[in-house]
Design a protein around this nucleic acid. Structure first.
Lengths: 134, 134
DNA sequence: TTACATGCAAACTGTTTGCAAATAT
DNA sequence: ATATTTGCAAACAGTTTGCATGTAA
């Protein structure tokens, strides 16, 4: 992703385009949809010779999420995954590899959902299809 | 749940019916389906005058899960929820209250799921319907 | 020039573990 | 008698925070 486009994206989200944010955004949004942890992103930044602390990576991921640029994916286990695809979609999770990827279809739907309890409404439906090696 | 039934359940699962396990199992399985964290279970045990350490509660929940008596539910956030209903079913999650409950229907189904990637098969489908107060 | 962002280390939370004492078989 | 389980405290992993320094506007 071009640096200018990243900078614009951050500005639109109301975030100052600092060196660290621009570099992290370029990694995150520069190569299609990604599912990444803070630790992984930090490692990639280090590899790309971007000087940024792990704390800043965490803070940045949380800011991006609050700004709607990322979405958190709930997987049981310790690490938190962040997804660069914020549109409505579902996931495969391959436990053996601790890897997460999008289900490539928009045809997927849920049937037979009852009315939610009184006083509540559905905010979002998360679907995780757990895979095992066969 | 009668103590005898709990003891039998533990034996069948290959777990020695110790005082702590029997007491925790009675709390867990004695009152319909429950969704509970280690901390919550520990608090209930203390209230019920069962002397048990938090570490033992954690260990016990993990043992029960390994034995197929419980099921873990992945919610983003820090705490791990354990569900006493191990059958195939889905969940509502009310974020405002950090509360989890079963979707009361067996009619719920997923349509349009593509073939899983080569070399993998579907182990389980987790669905979390996130609710907000309206 | 001023408000905001960063880095670091220290704090914090949920969870696991090592080991001696207690308990089930 | 012996193998398993427990409690405790200490360890641990992932994540957050306080504060001095640095940087964007």
């Amino acid at each position: 992703m071009m640096t200018n486009a990243v900078i614009e994206k951050l500005r639109v989200a109301g975030l100052r385009p600092t060196r660290q944010r621009v570099a992290l955004a370029a990694i995150l949004f520069g190569a299609g949809d990604r599912h990444i942890t803070a630790e992984q992103l930090h490692a990639e930044a280090v590899t790309a010779h971007v000087r940024v602390s792990l704390a800043t990576v965490y803070n940045t991921l949380n800011q991006f999420t609050r700004a709607g640029l990322l979405r958190e994916v709930a997987i049981e286990g310790d690490r938190t995954y962040f997804d660069t695809n914020t549109s409505n979609h579902f996931h495969y999770y391959l436990e053996a590899d601790d890897r997460l990827f999008d289900i490539e279809t928009s045809a997927l739907s849920v049937r037979g959902l009852p009315e939610p309890p009184t006083g509540t409404k559905i905010a979002r439906i998360d679907i995780i299809v757990r895979l095992t090696r066969q």
